[in-house]
Amino acid sequence: MASAVSSLSRSSGSAVRPLATRDATWVRYTLTAVALGFLALFLLLPLVAVFAEALRRGLGAYITALKDPDGLHALKLTLITAALAVPANLVFGVAAAWCIAKFTFPGKSVLITLIDLPFAVSPVISGLIYVLIFGAQGWYGQYLNAEAPWFPALQAWLIEQDFKIIFAVPGIVLATVFVTFPFVARELIPLMQQQGNDEEYAAITLGANGWQTFWNVTLPNIKWGLFYGVILCNARAMGEFGAVSVVSGHIRGETNTLPLHVEILYNEYQFVGAFAAASVLALLALVTLVLKSLVEWAHARRTA
């Protein structure tokens, strides 16, 4: 912040600047100190605390805690969930943003509202929706138990496969997809709207088909926004607690994701284990943030 102010004073060039455009020194330093202090207190300190607690009984205990098979399984499940949810939302987000930004059609505003829905409802409610639909007492359960179902072959197949949705991995992925739905689309819509349709029109006039237009014109334009949306989406997918907690069933070594595993260990008085798992989650988040910064840095260099 101080540097921004000083660069402003340099760029103004002249030797004497009107007093009215300058903040008093103490104001500048106070504001900077408040901002940095806030950051340190609410962001840095908890992060340090997580690692400090995890390492409190030494590196050996930390590594033993990390090797816990239930914890490793939770890590695996978290990564699988993100690996399924993020591409799904990538495809959906691009498609939705493309529709909304480049075309007009009836029901467009309804679609925009629907995309925002996961932001508006509490994650716990999102989880409950899936329990109500796919639970044993919900539509899916009723279908499996129906005497005369719509597609008897499908019912027989589902029963034979013992295909479970909630309290199993598919439910966790579904809940995560729902909660992280808006990230990519929300990132792209304003960008695409701002860019307008001119370049696409030009491409089509020059004889490009729809796919060529998208691949060679639209995608390069939205590349950076898309990256950013995917990274945010990934961060949330790995960290989601509420919705996943409702549909998971909390079976250790089977349907516990990393955030749920942290809570379980904490409640079992295994504080080193809990903070070790939390530190893994924090590391995943840090990797995501570093990726994000790299993307921003590369983007800034290209546009500069």
């Binding site: 329990v131 639970g135 044993a136 479970k164 309290f167």
Partner: peptide, 8 residues
């Protein structure tokens, strides 16, 4: 409740 909803 979870068992009622299908937790196996």
């Amino acid at each position: 409740r979870s068992v009622i909803d299908g937790l196996q």
